[in-house]
Amino acid sequence: MKLRDFLIGVATGLAAAIIIKEASERISPFVPANQVLDNVKDEFKKESPIDGSWIYMKTEDFNNGVMTIPVYRGGITRMNNGQLETFEFAADARSGVVVDLVKS
């Protein structure tokens, strides 16, 4: 195999990978809601077991006073010292980072 043929193959592979990555981000630029919920649940489980959880699969706009971002809304329920605690959260739909957490 010639070096030229090898380099053409590498360049073609890189170009295809970049095109596929860009196309997939345009089709679905958001982290899946299930993955966001799993990450939030994992963090809560570090402190105590959880009893229930939920998440809305559709995004909604969240304004923090500076900018508006698409978020998933969800919640976690757990028992802590015999008391039921309920938390509601908003997680950035693009990165999965929790941007708002409220104990209700």
Rank of each mutant, 00 (worst) to 15 (best):
L3D: 09
D5Y: 05
D5A: 15
D5C: 07
F6E: 07
F6R: 08
G9K: 05
T12E: 09
T12G: 14
G13I: 11
A15F: 04
A15T: 06
A15D: 06
A15M: 08
A16P: 02
A16R: 01
A16L: 11
A16T: 08
A17R: 07
A17S: 14
I18C: 12
I19F: 14
I20V: 02
K21M: 08
K21E: 13
E22S: 11
S24A: 15
S24H: 08
E25C: 03
R26M: 10
I27E: 14
I27T: 13
S28F: 15
S28K: 09
P29Y: 13
P29R: 06
P29D: 14
A33G: 12
A33D: 15
A33Y: 15
A33E: 15
A33L: 13
V36P: 08
L37H: 02
D38M: 06
D38H: 08
N39A: 15
K41Y: 10
E43F: 02
F44W: 05
K46M: 12
E47S: 10
S48W: 11
S48Q: 10
D51M: 12
G52Y: 11
G52I: 04
S53A: 09
W54T: 03
W54M: 05
W54Q: 07
W54D: 01
W54P: 01
Y56S: 00
M57H: 00
K58C: 01
K58T: 01
T59S: 01
E60A: 04
D61E: 15
N64A: 08
N64G: 10
I69V: 03
I69S: 02
V71P: 00
V71H: 00
Y72T: 04
Y72Q: 03
R73W: 04
R73P: 00
T77M: 10
T77I: 12
R78M: 13
M79C: 04
N80A: 07
N80C: 04
N80T: 07
N81C: 09
N81E: 15
N81G: 10
Q83N: 13
L84R: 13
E85C: 09
E85T: 08
T86H: 11
F87G: 12
F89D: 06
F89S: 13
A90G: 15
D92A: 00
R94A: 08
V97I: 09
V98T: 15
V99C: 13
D100H: 12
L101A: 11
L101M: 14
V102N: 09
V102F: 07
K103M: 15
